[in-house]
Write a protein that binds this DNA or RNA. Structure first.
Lengths: 255, 255
DNA sequence: CGTTTAGTTGAGCATGCTCAACGGTCGTGG
DNA sequence: CCACGACCGTTGAGCATGCTCAACTAAACG
């Protein structure tokens, strides 16, 4: 399946395509195709050789890893996110497996096209470096979130992040099932329940997927969000502009 | 202080300088200088704006982060490693603090020079992307190591990695103090002691900084090292060649 | 209606941390 | 040369966070 006109529009606006010339864009995207997958599809297993850069345009994808009968969620991606860019740049194999959580729409760009475009246009190469650097920093934030905070603190900060993204209102809707949210925050569903109960002391009231904040200040005092860990700070321009310089939302969310 | 001839030679051979032309190399390195720091020097604190790319040429550097009176070691770097490359590429502030653990020698390359060189030479830009991608993958390995293994398993794999790096002999020398090794492996010194005792069942005998392996097979059966987590696998060419395509030893070691 | 699945709640357990005490080594200074 | 102190490493006891296992409820779906 070849790209249709409107498909290219959707990705033309991605952080690392926006600055590219039309020729470079065409080169990078040559051989790319758009594909839909049902929920639960394994796109990639650990150790597989990586032939494509994936761009999640719609749906949700879980990145995970396993060892010796244990396995763990490393990130949950929401549109628009690229993934396994690092493996593509190094023409190497995947360190994480990727599975669709919902019916999803993905753009698949041949790795060789991408590498060729990087080598022929320095501005495009620089844009890819910026994307990679953003992914790296997202991972660092994620590690800090996990190592410096206990599970209830992670939940509190997650809720404040969602509040900021959903308009700063006093009530939000959780974007995932609670079991998915739990793995995103690095805990079991049981512990997520208990963490929600603990936060009732900070005015957090849960009803299904709706969460109401009755004492935002108390919650903030408890959560102590930090611009060095969380990525939702108003500092300066619009959050969208910020989100564009440092993307890969999923990874920054993630545990 | 200006670079002397032999200093440039030492960095000319770094993964992302090797492919560059002399002109680009000079441009990237213009304004760079070499500096020595005593042990315990804070090179960078979280949140500082980053003006230089650091290259550790000798000594050891700890990357860490803190929040709300807690703090944690994220990586320990050994020569030759770059650090805070991602912040430099994005011209952003530091997400980690950097402290020398020993007397150390560092090359400091002005961020602006580096970004200019990336934008003017696609081959150099691509090399920086490769370096970044390697750092990213090092972090992913590190997270997997931490989330999928308990502390004793991490120690066992660390010992096998050291054994491979030190020539596959039956006895190795620990390259760090045990307290540093503990933080590298993400545990307290007390627990490191206990983990060593547990591994005596697998033929691990400790005497100061010397470790002897009496039952390597048993240790390997226990540790189950994986090329998707550990970076010391013989797969194909020389390990050095492999280490060059995917560098930043410290980060891959790290917790 | 039964069956399934998500979510909650409770009890017990395990990994790893804190705090404290103790032994050994090294370096300094009397 | 020895005494002292500082620090690393070890060992033990108790504790906390988070996990497993199990039972139970409620809502969704056939």
């Amino acid at each position: 399946m070849v790209l249709r006109i409107k498909d290219t529009d959707r990705i033309r606006d991605l952080a690392f395509f926006r600055t590219a010339s039309d020729e470079i864009f065409d080169e990078a995207v040559s051989g790319a195709f758009l594909q839909r997958f049902p929920a639960g599809t394994t796109l990639l297993m650990e150790g597989d050789t990586v032939d494509f850069l994936y761009v999640l345009l719609d749906g949700a994808v879980e990145l995970g890893a396993g060892w010796k009968s244990r396995d763990s969620t490393l990130a949950i991606l929401k549109p628009v996110s690229t993934f396994i860019l690092a493996a593509v740049v190094l023409d190497s194999d995947a360190l994480m497996s990727a599975v669709t959580l919902e019916r999803s729409e993905l753009l698949m760009i041949p790795g060789e096209s991408l590498r060729r475009a990087m080598k022929s246009d320095p501005a495009f190469g620089f844009a890819v470096s910026q994307e990679l650097a953003g992914c790296y920093r997202g991972l660092v934030r994620s590690i800090k979130n996990h190592k410096l905070r206990d599970s209830t603190e992670r939940l509190a900060n997650y809720l404040l992040t969602q509040r900021a993204r959903q308009g700063g209102n006093d009530t939000i809707t959780l974007p995932h099932e609670k079991r998915v949210l739990a793995s995103l925050l690095g805990m079991t569903p049981e512990n997520l329940s208990r963490a929600f109960s603990k936060l009732s002391a900070q005015g957090v009231a849960v009803d299904g997927a709706k969460v109401r904040f009755d004492k935002v200040q108390a919650l903030e005092r408890y959560a102590r969000p930090s611009p060095l860990i969380d990525n939702h700070f108003p500092q300066g321009e619009s959050q969208l502009g910020k989100a564009h310089t440092e993307r890969q939302q999923g990874v920054l969310d993630a545990l």
